[in-house]
Design a protein around this nucleic acid. Sequence first.
DNA 1: CAACTATTCAATTAACTAGTTGAATACTAG
DNA 2: CTAGTATTCAACTAGTTAATTGAATAGTTG
Lengths: 223, 223
Amino acid sequence: MSSSHFKHDLFAQFARIAKAMGHGNRLEILEYLAQGERSVEALATVSGLTVANTSQHLQQLRQAGLVESSKVGLKVFYRLSGDDVLALLDCLRGVAERRLADVERLVTTYLTVKDNLEPVPAGELLERARQGLVTVLDVRPPEEYAAGHLPGAINIPLAELEDRLQDFPEDQEVVAYCRGPHCVLAFDAVARLRAEGVPARRLEGGFPEWRRAGLPVESTRKT
Amino acid sequence: MSSSHFKHDLFAQFARIAKAMGHGNRLEILEYLAQGERSVEALATVSGLTVANTSQHLQQLRQAGLVESSKVGLKVFYRLSGDDVLALLDCLRGVAERRLADVERLVTTYLTVKDNLEPVPAGELLERARQGLVTVLDVRPPEEYAAGHLPGAINIPLAELEDRLQDFPEDQEVVAYCRGPHCVLAFDAVARLRAEGVPARRLEGGFPEWRRAGLPVESTRKT
DNA sequence: CAACTATTCAATTAACTAGTTGAATACTAG
DNA sequence: CTAGTATTCAACTAGTTAATTGAATAGTTG
């Protein structure tokens, strides 16, 4: 046995990458980066970490070659360093879902249909919204929202949901709605909000049903 | 924000898997298991770890759901828990090779052609083998070996190479040969041996050339 | 150039992980 | 039932990693 073991060194290098992914916060950061490049601050906000901590996690990801960064103006933007990183993440998720009973359990605990199946009736929502007890969320595209929406509803397209969690008053239930009972947007929104720990339900029916029932509607000229 | 964050928990679960792979020794173990099921002892031998240590790494891999085990007689055999684990390993290797300059460097340092291109001439090998200075390795299938081989050569098919490193006297150069100059087996063997830190070179030509040159040949009846 | 901003660095603490040793367990074979 | 074997467990030490804090850096804008 002459020089230091090549194989050993090689596996150590591979391990660097696995290790970089071996922390929940870093995986969460990678997940956000999978949607496109983000600044350190943006990442810190969505992941609920301090900026310094986020920065350090990003350093580790960069050292492992998983992300790249570039400075634009004041901000440093990070992005995944390639599609293969995305593939690796998918692979990891796949294995996790197939192998870890805990994942299964978590998913069914939080995203179960058990009360997805209990949408909020329109009348109840109207009542509670008037009392300011719920946040009404419209997950349709901005154009549809502008054309008419529930009174007091805020409009956040699904894609931006995770980035705008701070727009929701804390500890207040969110009721989401979309185009109607055959539209899955609101289902998805409810699932995602619950994933972040936000209590959420779905409006029974959607905007068209609401309007047809003669309930009050608001529309936006130009804010 | 009500109950503990689902997303957080979920990423923590994913991280368990990445963390389990985040150590060179465990990756090495996984690599060996990728070739088929092995006992704890066998894994300890090939990876150069103590049995207890190997056992502990295996526990971690099992907790992450990456391997399964079953007891057969005295021994416990471990295996990868599915093809998706293999896919994950490949994915990891792929990213590592594309992203880590260090990997590239290691590979070229150890496996470079720089002296792969200097095979041992037959005459030199004969001389040094007589003095007992080299281990002669025949990497052809056992049948071909039985039909005739270099004097004193040991026969280890490529697939078993890593498992039988202990068969080589330490600190002695290994000279590998196979069917001839167009056969890649010996190249591969040399690369793998070097990867394990064993000094190795390739015989110029192969067994047919050796015999044709009128050099001594041994053959096996039945051991 | 001075004030400001976004990010990174450095130092600290607490928590975790790797590897070692020796003993305990569980099973087989005589 | 005893002796022997393969594996695992338990306890410990040394080393590494995560998060926090506050200061330093680099760059932009007025």
